[in-house]
Lab assay of single mutants.
Amino acid sequence: MFYPNSPQTSPQLTQIPYGQQYAMMQRQIQQPYHPFATTEPQARLYPYHYQGPIQQEQGGFITQQSTAASPQYVQMRVTPVDQSIMSGYPNQTANGSSSSSFNYNIHPQQQQQQQQQQQQLRHHAMPVGSVPLQDDRYRKQLIVNYLAPDVTSTDLHELFSRFGELDGARIIYDKQTNMSKGYGFVYFCHAEDAKEAVERMSGYEFHGKWLKVGYSTNPLNIVPSNSSPYVHAGSRGAAG
């Protein structure tokens, strides 16, 4: 039997160049792979992502010199942007860049009308829970959420009447099932009393439920100042 490094198959040491006398086997001759043993700084910083320098080929596509990437890492192929796409944008300079302001050559009167329309939209648009300043009635009506099913309009009136005089209180019921929808409205005579009720009743436990109280901004629920107070009856038909 002959071994790869046996004296019968191995040459004389004098015939082997210096430095390879003890590297006779194939696994010894093959050098191990060192990912950080390279002179390129990109490979030292990113050993798993770097795959060699990027070269520009004919046709405008950018390719990489090395083989496919590892399945664990996804390499994105980048193509140059066609400058003709950006030619339609206004205020574009000769080098292809555009300024931040756009001039669509709008007539001054049209621009003024658009600004007025935007101001009107901001004036009428009102986020949930906010209180408008032009109508004091919005500051007097509250919406009470997360009410228990057994709470009546009379219970709601008695709960909030300790903060001040009320114009009314009612629970909203479903017309088909005649069941409470879980929320109601309270109408105060003074805005200061309503503000105190919002601050003190939010998070209050009532009939096993934690109440959420806020201003009601729905104009359909506003009680006119010259109208008669609501009837605080315990029956659902009268309260709904």
Rank of each mutant, 00 (worst) to 15 (best):
K175D: 14
T39K: 05
A197V: 08
S99P: 14
Q42C: 11
E196F: 03
Y50Q: 09
F2L: 07
G88E: 11
T79Y: 14
Y138E: 15
F2D: 08
L166K: 05
Q30C: 02
H207Q: 00
G52I: 13
G234A: 08
T217D: 02
S235D: 10
P80Y: 02
K195W: 05
L133C: 15
T63F: 12
M25A: 02
V151I: 11
P4T: 09
G60C: 06
T177A: 04
V151T: 06
N5H: 02
Y104E: 15
S70Q: 14
Q110A: 13
S202Q: 13
S97N: 05
V223F: 02
H49T: 11
P41E: 14
N145V: 01
Q119M: 03
F188I: 02
N221T: 10
Q83H: 10
N178G: 03
S225W: 09
V128I: 11
L142K: 01
E205Q: 15
G129D: 05
M25F: 02
Q72T: 05
N178P: 03
F61D: 01
D82N: 12
A239R: 03
R200T: 10
Q58R: 03
P224F: 04
S98Y: 06
Q51D: 14
A233F: 01
T67H: 04
P53G: 12
T63K: 11
Y183M: 00
P41H: 13
I29E: 13
T38L: 04
I54S: 09
S97V: 06
K209Q: 01
A23V: 06
T154V: 13
Q31W: 15
K140H: 00
H207L: 03
M25E: 14
T39A: 12
E199S: 04
V144R: 08
R139E: 15
H107L: 07
G59D: 00
S6T: 10
S202K: 11
D167G: 10
L142D: 11
E158W: 14
V131K: 09
K181V: 04
F188V: 14
H34E: 03
Y33R: 00
Q92R: 11
Y73V: 07
P53I: 14
M201R: 01
H232R: 11
Y46W: 00
P53S: 09
I29H: 09
S84H: 13
H123L: 03
G240E: 14
E205Y: 00
T14I: 15
H232S: 02
G234F: 00
H157C: 12
G59E: 14
G240L: 07
L211D: 13
N105D: 06
L133W: 03
Q116G: 08
A191C: 07
I222Y: 06
G60I: 15
S6N: 12
R236P: 05
D167S: 01
L220E: 06
I222E: 15
A23E: 08
S225K: 11
A148Y: 14
S161Y: 06
I143R: 03
T39F: 08
S130F: 14
Q26F: 00
R44F: 15
V213M: 07
Y138C: 01
I172P: 05
Q118I: 10
Y18T: 03
D136S: 01
H207G: 04
V74L: 04
C189T: 04
Y22W: 14
N95S: 12
T177M: 14
P17Q: 11
G203V: 02
P71V: 10
V186L: 08
E165K: 07
W210L: 03
S100R: 05
G182V: 05
Q110T: 03
V74G: 08
H124I: 03
V131L: 05
Q8P: 07
Q111I: 03
L13T: 06
L133D: 02
A125M: 15
Q119N: 04
L166V: 03
D136Y: 11
R170P: 13
F163V: 05
Q72Y: 15
G168E: 01
F185C: 02
M76Q: 01
R137T: 02
G240D: 06
Y89P: 12
P90T: 12
I171W: 12
Q119S: 12
F188P: 14
P108K: 07
L45W: 05
F102Q: 13
F163R: 07
